[in-house]
């Protein structure tokens, strides 16, 4: 089963819960929070192998280009601009859409593979499974493309798969939720956490995915419970805000390995959905 762990709000505890579930299920762990990947600090994988991920991006042949400017007019992302007799590309704005190559009357634009980041795979002794880490090149805006590349290469042949998603509710989150057969929604039951969770819920409901809600860093579940009930959901597990848990995480522990209580409540929460 493919399980995506998402939250909307950053810092709700996606990585804490995702690594804990990977431990409980002895599952492969995919870090798709590609511009802030942190799961490896807890899984401590070894024997790394890595592959670079590329995306086709336009390259302008300066000799063939007559600087007619047609590409700059047609590009809808304003990624191409002309200064004097030279066309420049702002790669952070480019969507690799093929249009400039198509419109160029001189055939001066070609698409070439450019690195956008790497995928590192290691073996975690702690989970007895793999950790696959998406690592976006710093400054790159192609995070969603990197996520999609990793999702295309998901390997479900060895058992369960845990996806640690990115925060937020934009296209990157959608890409991390799309392959899921079960979504674990981690919610900090605070005004911020509930607000952001409701937006994620809209995405998840739109995609008709089954959902398990885990309250994390909880000091009071009641406000969250009330809102979930109205929408036909319940809190499946609640993990309190606890400085002991926080200390364990500072030491790089997987919470479900270090705390039997967390292990049991999380296992219970997913037991109706996942064969363990």
């Amino acid at each position: 089963m493919i399980i995506s762990v998402v939250s909307g709000k950053g810092g709700a505890g996606k990585t804490t819960i995702a690594t804990s579930l990977a431990y409980i299920l002895k599952a492969d762990y995919y870090d798709l929070d590609v511009d802030a990947p942190n799961g490896e600090y807890f899984l401590q994988p070894q024997d790394w192998q890595s592959r670079r991920v590329h995306q086709l991006q336009p390259v302008i042949d300066k000799d063939a280009c007559t600087a007619c400017g047609l590409c700059t007019h047609e590009c809808r992302f304003h990624a191409l601009y002309k200064i004097l007799d030279t066309i420049y590309l702002t790669d952070t704005l480019c969507h690799s859409c093929n249009l400039c190559q198509e419109v160029c009357p001189e055939g001066a634009i070609s698409y070439q593979q450019m690195s956008i980041g790497e995928v590192r795979t290691g073996l975690s002794e702690r989970t007895a499974a793999r950790a696959i880490i998406g690592d976006l090149t710093i400054g790159s805006t192609r995070g969603t493309a990197l996520i999609q590349d990793i999702v295309r290469n998901l390997d479900t042949t060895t058992g369960h798969v845990i996806i640690d998603g990115p925060p937020g509710n934009s296209c990157a989150a959608v890409a991390a939720i799309k392959p899921a057969e079960l979504v674990v929604l981690v919610v900090e039951p605070t005004p911020f956490g509930i607000h952001d969770m409701l937006q994620t819920m809209e995405i998840v409901e739109g995609m008709q995915k089954p959902v398990v809600v885990v309250a994390n860093k909880s000091q009071d579940d009641a406000p969250l419970q009330a809102i979930l009930e109205k929408r036909g959901y319940a809190i499946s597990a609640s993990i309190p805000l606890n400085s002991d848990y926080h200390r364990l995480l500072l030491d790089g522990e997987i919470l479900s390995q270090a705390s039997q209580h967390v292990h049991d409540v999380l296992q219970q929460a997913i037991s109706t959905e996942v064969a363990i």
Binding site: G11, D35, A36, Y41, F42, S140, G143, P167, G168, L250
Partner: peptide
């Protein structure tokens, strides 16, 4: 600002004079 270091972060940073970084004292 938004979390991360990708498109949304870059869009939030261009043209500012100073960044105040809030660093959570944790491994992540």
């Amino acid at each position: 600002g938004p979390p991360g270091t990708s498109c949304q972060a870059i869009s939030s940073l261009t043209g500012v004079q100073l960044v105040l970084a809030v660093l959570e004292e944790s491994l992540s």
